[in-house]
Design a binder for these strands. Structure first.
Lengths: 174, 174
DNA sequence: GTCTATAGGCCGATAGAC
DNA sequence: GTCTATCGGCCTATAGAC
């Protein structure tokens, strides 16, 4: 809180005029992250390519850049909070879940846009959640190892998985 | 700290006789987790099957059980600390990295034991790290969604990936 | 080795002036 | 709306008796 007040250049009296508690501030931040996903994460990534599957990997590349630009200090801000705060407050857990749903919703839309390129027996919701799972896990391992390799290699494996299910025949065999 | 002292039934004076600081206690806990991986996580899982790849999934099933038994309060204790503590102390980050290396080392050994069943062009170290990545990400998403589905579905997708690289031909196509 | 007692600081939050 | 000033509590850590 001291860091936030200092960065904002205000005193605690001002902060508690707008937010009734520390948790209320956190909930507002999590609402803001929901609003910011599209303009700050999805749209910049989508601007790089029009291919639906390519857009998913463009989003994933954004987290790779974030890791590199911050020297592995910052990965996914939601993931940071997820394991730390989720069992301290049920309201916080629900807002984090909303952020995850927002994220997987955007990935799911890409999968639907690429519908005829994907095998019919692949559940789109489950696959979108798996993309989130791999991203969050890869960010964690990369940050702890202070190396981008675990992230890049996880995304590379995810890509081979996509190449596999994007083909209904066995054309990708090596 | 208050919870730890209460659970241990001692006063803080006793604790600081053995550990010079809060961080020193955390480092000792992380050392203990390194020691405990084999007897508490790996060996119980390995006792269920002798198949090397099956053993990897038996380990992963242990985390599934933990999530269910604790009502999603406890997943991987190392992952809990990873995002929260890694940039507060370099020594802590290194000990967490050691725990991750210990874990992927056990998985890597399984992959080496299954060597001739796996495609030759798959890097064993990278694959072991990917298994860790999927587990940690899946634990996070399952805890936030308070549902075992994201975990089970991530492991299921990982299994199809293993089925794919365990076959040099295209026999697993559906 | 464990206790009691407490130092000294930071924390979240509030009151009231302006 | 923002400030100054401050409260009471909790925290990590220490001192010293036993």
């Amino acid at each position: 809180m001291a860091e936030i007040l200092s960065a904002a250049g205000v005193k605690s009296g001002s902060l508690y005029y707008f937010f009734k508690s520390k948790e209320a501030l956190l909930l507002a931040v999590l609402d803001r992250y929901v609003e910011l996903l599209q303009p700050a994460v999805i749209e910049p990534a989508f601007a790089r390519t029009r291919d639906p599957i390519g857009r998913i990997f463009a989003v994933l590349d954004g987290y790779r850049r974030m890791l590199l630009e911050t020297g592995f200090k910052q990965g996914c801000p939601i993931g940071n909070l997820a394991l730390e705060m989720s069992d301290k407050s049920e309201a916080v857990r629900e807002k984090i879940a909303l952020n995850f749903d927002n994220w997987t919703g955007a990935v799911r839309q890409c999968l639907l846009d690429a519908d005829d390129a994907l095998a019919a027996d692949v559940d789109r919701d489950r696959l979108a959640t798996f993309v989130l799972t791999v991203m969050e896990g890869a960010v964690m391992v990369a940050r702890i190892r202070r190396s981008i390799a675990p992230y890049e290699q996880a995304i590379a494996i995810l890509r081979t998985y996509f190449e596999r299910i994007a083909s209904t025949t066995c054309t990708l065999d090596k």
